[in-house]
Design a protein around this nucleic acid. Sequence first.
DNA 1: TTATATAATCAGGTGTACCTGACGATTTAG
DNA 2: CTAAATCGTCAGGTACACCTGATTATATAA
Lengths: 174, 174
Amino acid sequence: MTNLMGQGKTASKLVEFGMLQNIAEDDSQHKNDYKTLFQGQGKILLALSDNDNMSQKALAERVNMTPQSMAEFVRKLEKRGLVSRKKSSTDKRVIIVSLTEEGRLETEKRTQVIPKYLRVLNDEELNQFNKILDKINQQMYLDIKDADPTLHNKYHKLMLNHVLTKIHTDETKS
Amino acid sequence: MTNLMGQGKTASKLVEFGMLQNIAEDDSQHKNDYKTLFQGQGKILLALSDNDNMSQKALAERVNMTPQSMAEFVRKLEKRGLVSRKKSSTDKRVIIVSLTEEGRLETEKRTQVIPKYLRVLNDEELNQFNKILDKINQQMYLDIKDADPTLHNKYHKLMLNHVLTKIHTDETKS
DNA sequence: TTATATAATCAGGTGTACCTGACGATTTAG
DNA sequence: CTAAATCGTCAGGTACACCTGATTATATAA
C-alpha cells in the first residue's frame, strides 16, 4: 500500500500545517483570524458576500443555525458597522440584512489575504498546488453532499464564488 | 506579476479548503475536531505527546498560557481520563502531568486521521503535495521565529516529531 | 531562621459560539 | 374574520478557551 503510506505522510504534514497556522495566529497582530472566518459572525459575512439582502431566517437556514443565534450575530455585526438591518416593505415581519460598504471591504480583506508563506513556492509548485487543492476541494464538496445533501445545497459550490472571483480579478489587475 | 496572480488563486483555494474543512466538521460525527486540536486541552495533549511528565508550570510556558489556565485544562483532561497528575517527589510544590494510556491513544487517533479527501490524489500528486507542504511548513517556522523567537523555541520544530514519527511508522507498517 | 521566590489553587471574570423556550407582531388560509 | 403559520425578539443557558488577583504550600537564599 504505497499510496496509504503517502497519504499518511501528507496527513501528518497537514496536521503540522494546521498547527503552524494556529501558532502564527496566536502570535502577532493578525486580525484575520482563520478560526473565526467560518464561524459565527464570519460565516454570516461570507454568506452575505455571496448573496446580499437576505432575511434573517434565510440566512439562518443558509448557514445552518437557529434564527435566534442569527439574530444575535446580526446584531453584533450591526454594532460593528458591518451589516445593516432594515424592515422589508412587502412583509413587515422580516428583516433584510445587507453588508455595509465597510462590511464588504472587511470581508474581502479577510478572504483576500495572501499568506506570506506562499511566496516560497515557485510557479510550477503554485500550479501543482492549485490543481491539488481543486481536486481536494471538489472531493470535499462531494463528501459533504454524501453526508448531508441538504447541507451541501446550502453551502453550495457557488457560495464563495462571489468573493473568490473578486479576489482573482483583483489579483489579475495588480 | 504572474506569480502574485498565482498566489492569489492559491490563497482563495486555501480559504475554500478551510471553509470546507469547517463544514465537514460541523456536519457528521467527526470527533476529531480540527478546530480544537491546537487549542486548550488539545494543545496540551500535543505538548505531552512530545514531552511527557512535565510540571504544570513548564507545560504552561510551553504552550504559552497562564498557569491558572493550565491548571483548569489539566483538571478537565484528568476528568476525561486522558492525563494523570501526581506530586513530584523531589519538590512537593510541583505537579507532574502525564498522559494516560488512554490519553496517548486518543491523541494518536486525533493526529493520525487520514482525511478521506486525500484518496483522490494519485502518487505523483501526493508527492508534490508533500514537497509543497514541507516548503510551506518550513517557511512558517521561519516566519514564526521571525515574529517571536521565544515562541519559536517553545513550539520548536521537534514538537510534533514524536507524534508525527509515530504516524509515519504506523503507516509504513500497514 | 526569616524573608523571598516559586508552583499551584481558589475565586471570579470576559468573549464567542451556539441552543431552547416563551412570546409578540404580522401574514395568510380557511 | 378568526385561527394558524411565520419572522423575529426576549430571556436565560451551556460549553469552551482564555485571563487577572489573591492566597496557600513549599523551597531556597540571606
